[in-house]
Amino acid sequence: MRFNGLDLNLLVALDALMSERNLTAAARSINLSQPAMSAAVARLRTFFQDELFTIAGREFIPTPRAESLAPALRDALLHVQLSIISREPFEPAQSDRRFKVILSDYVALVFFEKVVERAAREAPAVSFEFRPPGDDTDDLLRRGDVDLLILPEVFASNTHPRAGLFDDVHVCVGCTSNKQLEEPFTFERYMSMGHVVVKFGNVRRPGIEEWYLLEYGHKRRIDVVVHGFSMIPPMVSGNERIGTMPLRLAQHFAKTIPLQIVELPLPLLLPFTEAVQWPALHNSDPASLWIRELLFKEASHMISPPGAAEPHMHRISTGPDPLTCDRRT
């Protein structure tokens, strides 16, 4: 079909090339032969009077013109998909939809595991694909390449819809044999000890507590950097290192690992909210509405963050606020 001289099928080919950055993979993704995809590239170059891609090895590198076309092209194809092709009602019991979800190991263990169990009862053929937090989440949401992104609300984008799910607090964890965690566990001692910290994605985005410390001009001693919260408990076991992680996950691991959990001596580090985001174009998509409702139902059963008076936690005496007294300008 042509529209103002452009074969609209070529837009599907261009979108595939922008996504895959490889001729063979792009052709396979839209069921074209490699010669047919090569011909589509030639026709696209002629129509737009631009090379659109340069080739480096087997990778197609988009030109500035192709990059400028990509957002509007993807939005247009998603509108067609969601508004015209996929408008039939979503029937969970009959669906074999696979939901792609970006989330941390923390969220998977303390929350989404229950969502999967609930989904299995309502929609036994529905499946899930988990992806770790990365550096391109905004682009994946914009392109509709993922269905859900779950992350601390403080890091959420303002360009996509979002809703809060549940709250938690950060705590300090160490081995039960770690005598340095005995009271009084001060800010100075916390900063001087060896830390196991989590950093996300290729750019190594810090966790909330690291962002908080850097914001106030403090740098702690980091012994080990890991890519998931679930790696912290084994890394502090049997030694004097400590880690900072969400309380719900710390309590999860304390059932099987000798883990001591104490309050953080960071008075201004408030409870945080885990939120869910989804592509704006999925706002009215029946499948997206169903999975979001499932999340909200499960989140309603999450009690408020447990207080510091748990049997295996002790309250920390910090004295004057170490951050507000020593903030760098």
Rank of each mutant, 00 (worst) to 15 (best):
L32V: 11
Q94G: 13
Q81V: 01
P35G: 14
L82A: 01
P92L: 11
I85L: 06
P71D: 15
I84N: 07
A72D: 01
A26G: 00
I55Y: 05
P92E: 10
Q49E: 06
A70T: 07
A70S: 10
A39S: 07
D75A: 12
A93I: 08
A40H: 09
I55C: 06
E91V: 11
I85S: 06
R97P: 05
R98W: 02
P92Q: 08
T46C: 08
P89N: 08
S83Q: 15
T63Q: 10
P62N: 11
V80D: 10
T46E: 06
V41H: 03
M37R: 12
R45G: 02
H79E: 04
V41D: 04
L44R: 04
S29T: 15
L78V: 12
I84C: 06
I30E: 01
R28E: 03
P92A: 10
T46L: 09
A39C: 00
F60D: 00
Q34S: 07
T46G: 02
L32G: 11
R87L: 04
D75S: 14
R43K: 08
A39V: 01
I61Y: 03
S38N: 00
S68Q: 01
Q34M: 11
A56F: 03
P35V: 13
V41G: 00
I61S: 04
T63P: 12
R74M: 15
G57S: 09
V80Y: 12
S38W: 01
F53R: 00
F47Q: 07
S68C: 01
F48D: 05
P62F: 08
R28F: 03
P62G: 14
T46K: 11
A66L: 08
R74D: 14
S33I: 15
E91I: 12
A27D: 15
L78W: 14
R58G: 15
P64T: 04
R65S: 06
L77K: 09
R58N: 12
R87T: 09
